[in-house]
Design a protein around this nucleic acid. Structure first.
Lengths: 189, 189
DNA sequence: GTCTATATAATGATAGAC
DNA sequence: GTCTATCATTATATAGAC
């Protein structure tokens, strides 16, 4: 892993845990063991690091979706995989919420130029979900169902973090899996 | 309205629109037309203003819930009122998300001492919802249903803000009203 | 590539005049 | 009560030695 990649990885984690604005070069420097001045050899500004972090998250998400695609299951299983992200990342979500939702929320309030880029991670999930749902031939519009899944996930992450509550994730994930099954039953009879 | 109340009102709005950390005394001063130094006659620190803002939001929320209580409807109508906050505050939610969810998320990342106070607004809604649901005598635990309502609302606000999309609010609010009706039907037959 | 030293601007906060 | 002036700190960012 190059020094640049180490910086991006550290920034990715710190932006998630502490927020973008609150995370200073000093924080990142401390995490990667370089001096503050040395950042500007690798990046031209803090915003430049943010863009690299968003790019990393986009690639990571894309890779995850492709992996699900190549795993050989059907669209239904893949959507269940999406829901289960909440279980997989349970500990961190309870501590820091959803990395996508909290970053877009922060950048939105900062009126930051990178907001669109950050939102594109949401769009990636949205488009992917629409693609999966369309293969199921359900009665309701695929985009509405995709947004429903995204909204439910976001709400669960927000409350799990606010109340530091694991039960809400467990309960709501079960409900969400059940909701998906119900959508299928309504068509298959 | 006293000067102190004007400051709190301006801070309340700015913290919502720009975030707590990003909002400086200069921002608030500009909004209330006083000098930066004069803040410290009314408050001893920025955190002190934050506490006053949270207190204002708590009181405002409490008043809203009591108003619903005194309006003379039944618990079902009151829960529908809760859901409809998303419609009432639609424009602001699309721009800035939910004031409760975004503040608790920010303070959580800042590891701020006022996090518990901010979370108490969530708890106020949660406890109130539990109280309403218990009067309905449903099959599932009241707290889980209350958390479900909170989570759905939060998710809708997050996505409406991220995608700047009014349709998602409209669609999801209809779904949420429908979900509530379904919960009632399951018992009343 | 990495460092130290520094420039520059903004912040929260204080002191004291009026 | 409100102001101006100022302090101390922190932040991003730059310059230049090694």
């Amino acid at each position: 892993m190059t020094k640049r990649e180490q910086i991006v990885a550290a920034a990715d984690e710190l932006f998630y845990q502490q927020g973008f604005e609150h995370t200073s070069f000093a924080h990142i420097a401390n995490s990667v063991n370089i001096s503050r001045g040395n950042f500007y050899y690798h990046f031209k500004s803090k915003d430049d690091i943010l863009n690299a972090v968003i790019s990393l998250r986009l690639n990571r998400t894309q890779a995850m979706l492709e992996q699900w695609e190549n795993a050989g299951g059907d669209p239904i299983e893949r959507i269940h995989c999406f829901i289960n992200i909440l279980i997989t990342n349970k500990s961190k979500i309870m501590k820091f919420g959803c990395p996508v939702g909290t970053l877009t929320s922060e950048l939105n309030k900062l009126d930051h130029a990178a907001l669109d880029a950050a939102n594109s991670v949401f769009t990636l999930f949205r488009t992917w979900l629409v693609g999966q749902i369309e293969q199921l031939d359900l009665s309701e519009p695929s985009d509405e169902l995709a947004m429903h899944l995204l909204a439910r996930s976001q709400g669960i992450a927000t409350l799990a973090s606010a109340f530091n509550d694991e039960a809400i994730i467990q309960n709501e994930v079960i409900q969400l899996h059940h909701w998906l099954d119900t959508q299928l039953e309504q068509v298959n009879r």
